[in-house]
Amino acid sequence: MDLQDLWFVLISVLFIGFFFLEGFDYGVGILLPFLGKTDTQRRVIINTIGPFWDANEVWMITAGGALFAAFPHWYATLFSGFYLALGLILFSLIERGVAFEFRSKQDDPRWRSVWDWAIFFGSAIPALLWGVAFGNLVQGTPINAEMIFTGNFFDLLSPYTLVCGLASFTIFTLHGAIFISLRTTGQMEQKAQSTASRLWPVAVGVSALLAVANYAYIDIFTKIGVNPGIMPVASAAALLSVGYFLRNRQHGWAFAMMGATILLSVATFFWFLYPNVMVSSTDAAYNLTVDNASSSDYTLKVMSVIALTVVPIVILYQGWTYWIFRKRLLDDAKALEY
């Protein structure tokens, strides 16, 4: 495997980590106003991700940095091209991040409600837009011979990309519901369980729609034929098994299978995309590929050594934090704030 391919895989891994971890964070944020009817309930919901969300978000920052370092043209074309969409994501993340910290600092229902809705929109908008953005990478956007995006914000919204956005939104919401059910007890646990059971058919429906849309709108049909191969099929199977585990009240398994669904579908996405990194709808000759968008071999070598050393260590200590905070949160927990 040459260095460009290795980095394409590493970027995929970072995005898988990001969508797996931030996926349930976004889901928890989306469900916050609906599952939490009292202030204590809302605090419990926020605290399910309290110790984790910031470190989870670093997966996105790392993916962005790695894109910049390994594929500067991909980073430059994507970020300047999707300017307003990324601006929306940025403002969402700003509001959401401070809301987690600020909401408890004033004992006033209006104050708290403002920050709760900031958490909701700050989670919902990125959950939707990341799907839209990824849809655009495979479907193609107007890019000229100089690798410059020539479209506008509304070019990013097409039936296909909207289905992608809807899919990421519903998958993350379901993921969040199952996560809450694992981190709480009593009434909140039950509420999260029944929400997950009701969300699951919706997620299956939207995913089926996405599967059809993949054949209708992008070039996978010509690329790989009718039989999509093992990864997407396994991804679908994982999502279907989530329903089974939810019915049998095996929520740990349901969560693991959600993880498998996200891992496999993001991997499928990158597999569809390869060797392109951004498709040009203007002319296929202008596609950004792993070869024409990458850094020099020297930079890739240096970064490979560092990434392959550090990422496993990060996974270890980050995993350890989930172990130390594995205890479920009680409904009537007193000192939930800090």
Binding site: N47, G50, P51, F52, D54, A55, E57, V58, I61, T62, G64, G65, A66, L67, F68, A69, A70, F71, P72, H73, Y75, A76, S295, S296, Y298, T299, V302, M303, I306, A307, V310, V311, V314, Y317, Q318, T321, I324, F325, Y338
Partner: peptide, 29 residues
């Protein structure tokens, strides 16, 4: 990109992960 992206990515890998993970540990632990 070759030169500026690298330290930026390393910053996230070696510093941001450490800082944010252990901040969560410090607050809630």
């Amino acid at each position: 990109g070759d030169i500026f992206g690298a330290p930026l990515a390393i910053e996230a890998l070696v510093a941001f992960f450490l800082e944010s993970t252990f901040l969560g540990v410090w607050i809630f632990g």
